[in-house]
Nucleic acid binder design. Structure first.
Lengths: 225, 225
DNA sequence: GGATAGTCTATAGGAGTCCTATGAAACGAG
DNA sequence: CTCGTTTCATAGGACTCCTATAGACTATCC
């Protein structure tokens, strides 16, 4: 009855997914929103610019276009977003936060305290290791096309993996022009500039391969096809 | 514009939550189910016994009782579960898988391959570290009452943390009567027997505190109130 | 021993999610 | 100036998820 070895990590992730979902309903509900609406607000807040097309939102949140269309219409009714046709392309509808929307977004994009407390219960090393694991998993999911390429350091034009010899902060971010460590890696960086598609694998290999000495790592690089 | 330090782990978890949600819809949809229905089937499959009350299902899946009532009714219509009044207590309705339900549950409870691949992209050490992080986070969430106490080793009557000196497998499971390591920890063990409430904190402290030598860990134990 | 209080489930009602399949504009190319 | 394509909105259907409440049963207290 011992379950196969790697059912444990997904089980744990699912468990945490449960909390996140539950919290999303509870928190959004208080403010008369739904989880999807909150996510939209948070996403628009992070990259407000001059509005984003419905199709982009759908792709980024991994929802179908009609679902986003629905949700945007609901937010529009509530006066939290405004829609306008793009001048460049008359088919495109740009979605932008209103002032009230921006206020709501502030609440929507705050992580729940209990989750921050949970992360606080890890010490610094554990946090760094955990973050590294997350980054690798997300990378693998992106490779698989299961997830839109996210704005992570190792796919960013400004990222220079292992540019320094400092064990603590081996990498370098050319945007802020400062050395950064594994613990500083961004998952969804506002200043991210996606590197060229041909360039990304090289960046990733550098990031993964260049481990600190003493570890003659046989880095697995995706077992089979 | 650098975001506060611990926004990264939640961002990563949210990202993975996105994939899980998306996959849940896609996979369940193929079989004419919804994510909630799949989860119910999977849960009933894991602890089938003689059926579980609706209220238990609601608590375990962190849903409201009417939501579960609805979903169970839908599964009943599809012939995947059967409902029966409990003999012990005439108010209680026990939900049990039918034969067809058990077959469906097999599909429902398999983790998607791409997730297993993502986990595979971590090496053994990284996996163990990641799993340990998950266990600690889930523990913290349970303490906070954000999540039903899950069937994890460190809250189990059979668990003997640091019973051995072996660095690889320091703990012992009295159920299977074998030494186990951090990498073997269960998140949702079928044979779990929840330890007494007074006993659990001691178990957890032993598990966390008894780190390998060389680490004079100042384990943080929840910063403030 | 019967009224009262508490528990468990189902139902009602309402807004929204999420899908597929279409419809209706607006672009782009021949 | 028409195809064919892209982009968004709508329609329809099954469900999710909530709160509030009704119905059935159990437990408790004079």
């Amino acid at each position: 009855m011992t379950s196969p070895p790697d059912q444990r990590i997904p089980a744990g992730l699912a468990r945490i997914g449960l909390v996140l979902r539950h919290h999303a309903w509870a928190a959004a509900g208080e403010r008369g929103l739904t989880p999807t609406q909150s996510q939209l607000l948070a996403f628009l807040d992070a990259r407000h610019r001059d509005g984003l097309p419905v199709s982009t939102l759908a792709a980024e949140l991994a929802l179908s276009q009609p679902t986003v269309s629905d949700a945007v219409a609901a937010l529009d009714r509530k006066g939290l977003v405004a829609r306008s046709r793009s001048g460049d392309d008359g088919r495109v509808v740009l979605v932008r936060l209103t002032a009230r929307g921006r206020r709501e977004a502030g609440h929507a994009s705050r992580w729940p305290d209990f989750l921050l407390r949970a992360i606080d219960s890890l010490d610094a090393d554990e946090r760094a290791a955990f973050l590294r694991g997350l980054v690798k998993m997300i990378h693998s999911l992106q490779e698989d096309g299961q997830i839109p390429v996210s704005r992570m350091c190792p796919s960013c034009d400004y990222f220079r993996p292992h540019a320094h010899t400092d064990r603590e902060r081996p990498h370098h971010c050319a945007y802020v022009d400062a050395p950064i460590g594994d613990a500083d890696l961004r998952i969804d960086c506002g200043d991210h500039r996606t590197a060229d598609a041909n360039e990304r694998p090289r960046l990733w290999r550098l990031f993964i391969g260049g481990r600190p000495p003493g570890a003659d790592v046989p880095h697995p690089a995706l077992p089979e096809s």
